[in-house]
Design a protein around this nucleic acid. Structure first.
Lengths: 339, 339
DNA sequence: CCTTAGCATGGTAACGATATCATCGTATTA
DNA sequence: TAATACGATGATATCGTTACCATGCTAAGG
């Protein structure tokens, strides 16, 4: 059996209270006693049970992170940033994937609540139903939560300004002379990137062709982008540019276009979103909208940590915060026009 | 304050023992009592405290996963597979990244032990020191662990057969006529991929040029591959092919080569490792060695779950298992010769 | 009608820590 | 020298569950 604080106390010939004192290093303990206890701890290979500690401390020092999936560079990078920041503050991270399924999402949040996480980073990306079970859970149990999805009403929120980002991207295409831009979006609506596109059309007083607005049926990945572009090409609509929901989708489109004999950017211009690492490798290099992942992660962590440092009473009245990060259009070669 | 089982008992006018019974659904409870209790649970929004439950059950139903980082498609994909399988079996996953640092690695494992995870998936990738603190921790506390690193002696182990994979890849290059193959490895030794390369040289009775064996100084990423290839090119060694530690590194090399005016595959042939999604996008498409991630993940989960189902006594004598998965050479365009 | 079984439930000791209050010396002060 | 303060430690309630044993009730069997 694993040794407990009682075993250590017996071994060192003191009371468990004193052992607890050296474990936490707060009360004063005589040096000789302290070293006796430390020796006993070493000898028995004692590791305090964090769960037992949590029960009485009423905080677990765990964070739950909910994301669609991790095999998506954006989420993975975000995780790496968050992991480092929370680790530095003594938190361990539970992670649960929604697999883009509302039931799973709610189940993950419920699990986190049962495990009494101190806070939640909510990075799901699903259309919000009504009633929204996940949101209800989060509110009922008053778990401090920071969301990456602005549609989660009432939660703190840190986002990239996708409306702006998409508008910039499409403006760029329009300025290069494109008038028919196909959009391959993700599976969810409403979608600020799509709105940004429509916004740019509007600002430039251009007609929209609804047949060019597409959405992938599942996760916005390389495969789904590829499949959707194949379908679009099959329908014979004409277009001279493509705006992809993210870089993976954009790459999928590129692959489909090339298989259909189109050249990039000569025949079709492409712009993506996220600026993943591979965006600089692919030739022609991808023009895309960069999200400041590190800054977003830091804002997320800072906000949640600040909320956690409030007393439980104060947390309820902690002001709702909404931070939107500016994105940046990174112009490379996939739209041509720059040589 | 969050409602406890006692509040529910009071609300329903029964004892906490009975509430516990309906919570666990094992003992028989009269239907009318049961519904009274369920009503109270709903009314109070009661969620049982999993940690309190763990204390007495002596299992937390959590798994700790330790990985170098997640912004690496291989680890991210593996995580997604594992997450699904463990979720289906009622486990929640803690994840900790080592940041390729032995101290952090040991600290993560220690944290997992303090949190009393039921099992650990050990996916660190670091040179093993002697003495090996992480291994000692794992052994002392007898946490059921499955490793992805065969150098963790005494642990169950599931790996891709990299020696074979690398041999296949290099054999392919040699068969295409290449005699000077640069290797850009990861930061750690020994490295089975490097050994596979040497093995192929040996089998084909070719001389080796040590100057062509390189290793990235940090994580095997796009950036480090790019930097290392830049350095190699600066040294003026001649070579006609490159074998990259993984696809990201290979892409980094490609980028550096192209900047130096080399064409792929005409001037330099490239082969990567892992077969990430982008391997099919890049033109020329990357020839690479595919690891069966899904199968590896399933084997990992199955093995750990089986170990966990043993009684604590039986776990000690549970036979050490070592599973190596065959890899598959995926021939595309980056080596030419098929074209 | 008494015994006995079995069902439904209650009471309470764990689990492994921390927190609080009590206690006992010993040194300091008036 | 008695009062006092403080430093070091011990005893024990507590956190929110589950496990285990006890108990009361009803119905069946003799």
């Amino acid at each position: 059996m694993k040794p407990t604080i009682r075993d250590v106390a017996a071994e060192a010939g003191v009371s468990i209270a004193t052992v607890s004192r050296v474990l936490n290093g707060k009360d004063r303990v005589k040096d000789s006693t302290k070293s006796k206890i430390e020796e006993a701890i070493r000898k028995l290979n004692f590791q305090p049970d964090q769960n037992a500690r949590s029960m009485i401390k009423k905080e677990t020092r765990t964070i739950g992170m909910v994301v669609p999936e991790l095999s998506n560079e954006y989420w993975a990078q975000l995780f790496d940033v968050l992991q480092r920041l929370f680790w530095e503050n003594g938190y361990t991270i539970f992670i649960g994937t929604t697999e883009r399924n509302l039931d799973k999402e709610a189940a993950v949040v419920k699990t986190f609540i049962e495990r009494r996480v101190d806070g939640i980073i909510f990075g799901s990306a699903l259309p919000r139903p009504n009633p929204d079970r996940t949101l209800e859970l989060l509110e009922r149990f008053a778990v401090p939560t920071v969301s990456l999805d602005p549609r989660m009403k009432g939660l703190h929120c840190v986002v990239g300004d996708h409306l702006q980002g998409a508008t910039d991207a499409v403006d760029h295409l329009i300025r290069l002379g494109h008038r028919s831009i196909a959009y391959v979006g993700g599976p969810i609506v409403p979608d600020n990137r799509e709105l940004g596109l429509r916004n740019a059309y509007l600002l430039n007083d251009l007609p929209v062709n609804e047949a060019l607005f597409r959405r992938t049926s599942d996760s916005p990945t390389f495969q789904s982008g590829y499949a959707e572009m194949k379908r679009l090409l099959g329908e014979g609509e004409s277009f001279t540019a493509v705006f992809g929901f993210n870089d993976a989708v954009a790459f999928g489109c590129i692959r489909a276009l090339e298989e259909a004999g189109k050249r990039i950017p000569e025949d079709v211009a492409i712009v993506g979103y996220d600026d993943i690492q591979m965006a600089t490798v692919f030739k022609p290099r991808l023009t895309t909208v960069r999200q400041p992942v590190r800054e977003i992660g830091e804002a997320l962590a800072t906000l949640l940590l600040r909320a956690l440092s409030e007393t439980p009473d104060a947390q309820r009245s902690f002001p709702r915060t909404h931070i939107a990060f500016k994105t940046k259009l990174v112009v490379r070669d996939s739209c041509g026009g720059r040589g």
